[in-house]
Amino acid sequence: MSLKRNVSLATGLRYRGQGPMLTYVLHRIGGLGMAIFVAMHILASYLGGDIGGLLNDIYENWAFQIFVFFCALFHAINGLRITILDLFPKLIEHSREAIWIEWAVFIPVYGIAVFVILSTALGG
């Protein structure tokens, strides 16, 4: 039995899921980003040598750090929201508010981190 969606890509892109949809998409991007980063990092540490050095150079780059920190921080904060709401289903009523709290935590912490990364990378 295979699944048939009958929804085209164009229709999918026009879907307006608003805040919850955005967190779902970013959670997925963050998870994928971290999985790729951790896999690269383990491989680089295990292999060492030229390949390891090349991979190290990639993830020590400030642009990559900004991306990976976004993945890790958003996935961690959003994951905590999902865990709390799933383990305490009565809180589902307040899921919209939970997403606002999530952004209120994420934006300042991520903003400070990006500022620190950039001022270290570009300011010397």
């Binding site: 039995m1 295979s2 699944l3 997925r28 998870g31 994928l32 971290m34 999985a35 951790v38």
Partner: peptide, 21 residues
């Protein structure tokens, strides 16, 4: 814990696009 969590996440993502058994 992280490898198991991450790999299960990748399987969940793959299941959204790969639907044949």
């Amino acid at each position: 814990v992280a490898v198991a969590h991450g790999m299960h996440g990748l399987v969940v993502i793959a299941d959204d696009y790969i639907v044949s058994s």
